[in-house]
Amino acid sequence: MIPAAIILALAGICIYFYFDPSESALFPKCSFYCLTGLKCPGCGSQRAIHALLHGDLSTAVRFNAMMVVALPVVLLLCVGELVRTRRPELYLKLNSRWVIRAAFIVVTGWWIVRNLIGQ
């Protein structure tokens, strides 16, 4: 499970490093955006990852600011999942009520706000 995840992640990093999603037609467009014309919370993530892999933080923030903020949080939560049974008290801290609520509010809030301000 873990080796498979590492291989997938490395493959993804290579693809998003060498190909620019805003220039190549190969990358899938967001289904929500295609159907509604509105941006979903994840729109721009592929371009933002490409920018991040090239060390261009400001461009990444412009494509999807929330994704840039959420990435380290998601990585931390993944570590929490790996040590859940060995460090239950750490897992409880990482998955506390406020962390989960904040994640929910930030994701749904970003969904609404980015469509209002055109980000």
Partner: peptide, 24 residues
Amino acid sequence: PPMPSSYLPWALIVTILCCMPIGI
């Protein structure tokens, strides 16, 4: 017993990277 897995990182990855409102 330790808290069951919340699957929060997977839920967030699905929401952010797969453009899926289902992740909510």
